[in-house]
Design a binder for these strands. Structure first.
Length: 911
RNA sequence: GGGCUCGUAGCUCAGUUGGUGAGAGCGCACGCCUGAUAAGCGUGAGGUCGGAGGUUCGACUCCUCCCGAGCCCA
């Protein structure tokens, strides 16, 4: 007779081999079929809410590992909150305007782009952006992310754009918006502003000139160096380093001022061998002194700025706030030097440039150098070849040119201070995030919100054709907002100024009714920064403020920053309660990923090779608050861990095959080992819940992985195997263990489902024969923590017993190595101790010791030492059914080669 | 160059307010089992806690500097 067939062996359809690559897409189909997002929302109708507001990724190109991480983290949070009983709506969104798309689209269009109207370019950009959204949407769904994918938000949707204007109108009403000059990169050949991304660097030969400026109050000269003589008409200052030494040197009877560090190289360059240092002093002392412009009747103020370079030049830097970024930042924003921009959009000097008016800057260098020579200010002229920015389209050198831009004032109405106060009310995780964003708000200059781009949200400003007044009026903005709501922002390009203005609108300055549209667009950070208004306050299912924003730590300067600024202006509150940030993904060595290094890991490739759950598991294993690492090896490690978890599920499912809730054994009646295991489960539930509550998913991972592989697989499941297989189906011994397995499986499926979204769903489907109630594990309830299931005495007893077990395993291994036994059931254990406490402990559990140690017999006795474990070959014959040794095995008439226990079970089974 | 962050076994992570001999899981090595079997079990080997100073009776834990890495700026 095959006794094997009389055992209760595990049985389940839950395959050992995951085959996630095929299975996951099928689960995604199932989620579609049951409309998982709305199913979950309906199940949680009326529940308290937890709103995680999605920060919009840029709709351009396939998702990369970083965007995948961000979305998965959000998904984990949302799934966890739902399991905790929250209604947690998740509306994904996309950022769609701006340069990268415009750039890409015009590049794809090639020469054709030049023949297209702004409107046609915009249409092409929109089409492209919408395609990208569809692509990314599929990819995010492949990762297992649940959200309202059918009703996503996007900054190009008219209803969104409309809200941008609501916020913008508020900014204008509040007096935050002003117009001022700021240098932007400019191509005078294409007559357009350029973004940093539209610049190429090539070598270029420029003049290199040293110029001396006479000091106003004494007969000394400060010497500057520049490679752009044409910017001298824009000079309003000279910068020196506050922490470096400067010298006054006597050269040819003149006193020159320059940096000590550069003195030698300058003198070398100027071929001056006769000079004498008269004085050495700190650069700080020059701060505030005044020099005289050599070509204009104008002063040039000396300022202290620590960006001053001590490698090239003279250490005294010519500052033209209209022609350079640093010149502007330090010269104008910090030291309030005038911003002169005497150059028009074609690169021709304007009247502001005095005698140079009408001359093209390309021809001005020569003229200016000659003039400097004539007035005796030129110290030296040479040529220099250096890397210089060029236009990406026409390949010509570009310039910095100050143009009129729109700004948001950070000081108006105490905005900066108010924002800082609201930062205080937000919970920043990790906590240093608060310091980081505070510092950024503290230091940020006024916000330049205008861009000279086509693909963006138009700034509805007009210019009076009669008096040239520039008009940005809340009345117009509201009026235009309503047009946008219907027709989208394309209306700005499609309709005439008259059609866009409220009826009878007249110029506040001259009363004219003749206006022209202006064509600046808004900085895209305004677009996305308005999402609280366009999404949170607009959608009935959401709340404002959101409970959480969750993005990479680069968003302290980006989205968190723009959002809180705008939210404080609009609603006088932060738009979020919690801001959670994650780090960036690096390769195995901790290096940044880049195509050139060839260390890029593609999340979609991981999905198609190993499965999204492996990717999700990897993420959960990492301490994502900081930078984390990924590589083939690291993924392969997670594959192993995944298998372990999967097999644990499979074994639990297999052993619960014939169990239903009605078979459950009450706690009081359970066997001690089972009580202990159930108690351990409670402790696990508690610590896992705490870890999730603090968003420390790597702790969740560590606790549960250790739980599955050590406590369950290696200990409890191994111990309980004998009972489950051998005892009668309905026996208390077996049902007691199954009851615990049932709780363990249910808890594991639920607690791991935020991470292993697919596998837990699959496991849940197989578990559903146990009368689970829902269509998806996603709407199950978080396992309850039953403190009353932690029997203190049993817990401490088993802590002690585990120590004895460790010792016993070592002894067993020694004997195994000696070749005396193979399986531990071949052995008999003699556990001896001189401690009454230990002896009492062992005797208290005497009936369970064999199963606990997984041996055929345990005897307890006295010894001289604290603990002594002797291993002997078990006495008697090996039972054909349960493989344990027993002296009476083989004595039963009816069931040969069985032990008394098995014979008893078999008799009962037959009867 | 500035602000912020990180650097513990091959890999991923723990290490409370400084205090007995630095831990876990995976992987690896060796062995067992063949009724979780492309599974399961056991034992074991792996770390001068990035480096150098300093504070202290005592530091992986505090301070300084250096090296390496990242984000944001310049």
């Amino acid at each position: 007779m095959e006794y094997r067939d009389t055992l209760n062996l595990p049985n389940t359809d839950f395959a050992m081999r995951a085959n996630l690559v095929e299975k996951e897409p099928r689960i995604i189909e199932k989620w579609k079929d049951i409309d998982i997002y709305n199913y979950v929302q309906n199940q949680r109708a009326g529940c308290p809410t937890f709103v995680l507001h999605d920060g919009p990724p840029y709709a351009n190109g396939d998702i990369h590992i970083g965007t995948a991480m961000n979305k998965i983290l959000k998904d984990i949070v949302v799934r966890y909150k739902v399991l905790q009983g929250y209604r947690s709506p998740y509306v994904p969104g996309w950022d769609t305007h701006g340069l990268p798309i415009e750039h890409k689209v015009t590049t794809m269009l090639g020469a054709k782009a030049k023949t297209m109207s702004q409107m046609e370019i915009r249409k092409a950009c929109e089409e492209f952006a919408r395609q990208q959204i569809e692509v990314q949407k599929k990819q995010f769904q492949r990762l297992g992310v649940i959200g309202d994918w059918d009703n996503y938000y996007a900054t190009l949707k008219p209803e969104y754009e409309y809200k941008i204007y609501e916020v913008f109108a508020k900014l204008v009403e509040g007096g935050y918006v002003y117009r001022a000059k700021k240098p932007v990169l400019w191509c005078h050949n294409c007559r357009t502003a350029l973004a940093q991304a539209e610049i190429e660097y090539h070598d270029h030969v420029s003049p290199s000139i040293y110029v001396k400026f006479k000091m106003r109050d004494c007969d000394e000269f400060i010497v500057i160096w520049t490679t752009t003589p044409w910017t001298l008409p824009g000079n309003t200052g000279i910068a020196v380093h506050p922490d470096h030494q400067y010298v006054k040197v006597l050269v040819n009877g003149e006193i020159w001022i320059l940096a000590e560090k550069l003195l030698e190289s300058v003198m070398n360059e100027l071929k001056v061998d006769q000079y004498r240092i008269l004085e050495t002093f700190n650069g700080k002392l020059l701060d505030g002194k005044v020099a005289l412009h050599p070509l204009f009747e104008r002063e040039s103020r000396i300022i202290a700025a620590d960006f001053v370079d001590m490698e090239t030049g003279t250490g005294c830097v010519h500052i033209a706030p209209g022609h350079g970024e640093e010149d502007y930042e330090y010269g104008h924003l910090v030291h309030r030097l005038d911003v002169l921009s005497p150059v028009n959009e074609e690169g021709v000097f304007t009247d502001e440039a005095g005698k140079y008016a009408g001359i093209h800057i390309d021809k001005a260098n020569r003229l200016i150098i000659d003039d400097l020579q004539a007035v005796g200010a030129l110290v030296k002229e040479a040529k220099i070849s250096h890397s210089y920015p060029h236009c990406w389209r026409c390949k010509k050198p570009v310039i910095f040119r100050a143009t009129e831009q729109w700004f948001v004032s950070v000081e108006k109405n105490n905005l900066r201070k108010t924002v800082l106060e609201h930062i205080d009310d937000v919970m920043w995780i990790p906590s240093w995030g608060k310091n980081r964003i505070s510092a950024m708000i503290q230091e940020r200059p006024d916000w330049c919100i205008s861009r000279q781009r086509v693909w963006g949200t138009p700034i509805p400003a007009f210019k009076c054709n009669d008096c040239q007044e520039v008009i940005l009026d809340p009345v117009i903005i509201h009026h235009f907002a309503n047009i946008v709501r219907e027709k989208g922002t394309n209306a700005w390009f499609e309709l005439s100024a008259q059609e866009l203005l409220p009826q009878g609108y007249t110029c506040r300055k001259c009363g004219s009714e003749n206006f022209s549209k202006m064509y600046d667009t808004l900085d895209v950070w305004i677009d996305s920064g308005c999402s609280f208004e366009a999404v949170l306050t607009t959608r009935p299912e959401l709340t404002f403020p959101a409970d959480m924003y969750l993005e990479g730590s680069d968003q302290h300067r980006g989205w968190f920053n723009s959002s809180i600024m705008l939210s404080v202006v609009k609603h006088n509150t932060a738009p979020y309660r919690i801001v959670l940030t994650h780090g960036f993904i690096k390769d195995e060595e901790g290096k940044k990923m880049s195509k050139s290094l060839g260390n890029v890991v593609d999340p979609l490739e991981v999905c198609s090779k190993y499965g999204a759950d492996v990717l999700r598991l990897w993420l959960a294993s990492s301490d994502y608050f900081n930078d984390i690492r990924i590589s083939q090896n690291i993924i392969l490690q997670q594959v192993e861990v995944y298998k372990k978890i999967r097999n644990t599920f499979r074994y639990l499912l297999g052993n619960l095959n014939d169990f239903s809730e009605s078979d459950a054994v009450r706690f009081e009646k359970m066997l001690p080992v089972d009580k202990w295991a159930l108690g351990r489960l409670q402790q696990i539930i508690k610590s896992v819940t705490e870890a999730y509550e603090s968003y420390e998913f790597s702790r969740v991972y560590n606790i549960l992985v250790r739980y599955c592989s050590v406590e369950l697989s290696a200990v409890y499941l191994d111990i309980v195997k004998d009972r489950l297989y051998v005892e009668a189906k309905n026996s208390l011994q077996r049902r007691s263990a199954q009851t615990v397995l049932y709780h363990i499986l249910r808890s594991l499926l639920v607690m791991l489902s935020p991470i292993l979204a697919f596998t837990c769903e699959e496991g849940y489907e197989h578990f559903k024969s146990q009368k689970m109630k829902y269509d998806s594990v996603q709407v199950e309830r978080w396992p309850e923590y039953h403190e009353e299931w932690i029997d203190k005495q049993i817990m401490t007893d088993f802590d002690e017993l585990m120590k004895v077990r460790d010792q016993a395993l070592k002894s067993l291994e020694e004997v195994r190595q000696a070749g005396l036994i193979g399986h531990s059931l071949d052995a008999k254990l003699l556990i001896k101790s001189n401690s009454q406490q230990t002896l009492d402990l062992l005797r208290r559990y005497s009936e369970y010791l064999e199963e606990f140690f997984i041996v055929s017999l345990v005897e307890v006795g006295n010894s001289d030492s604290e603990l002594e474990i002797e291993v002997q070959k078990a006495v008697g014959e090996k039972c054909d059914r349960c493989w344990k040794y027993h002296p009476l095995t083989g004595t039963d008439q009816q069931f040969p080669n069985t032990c008394p226990r098995c014979a008893r079970v078999l008799r009962a089974q037959k009867g």
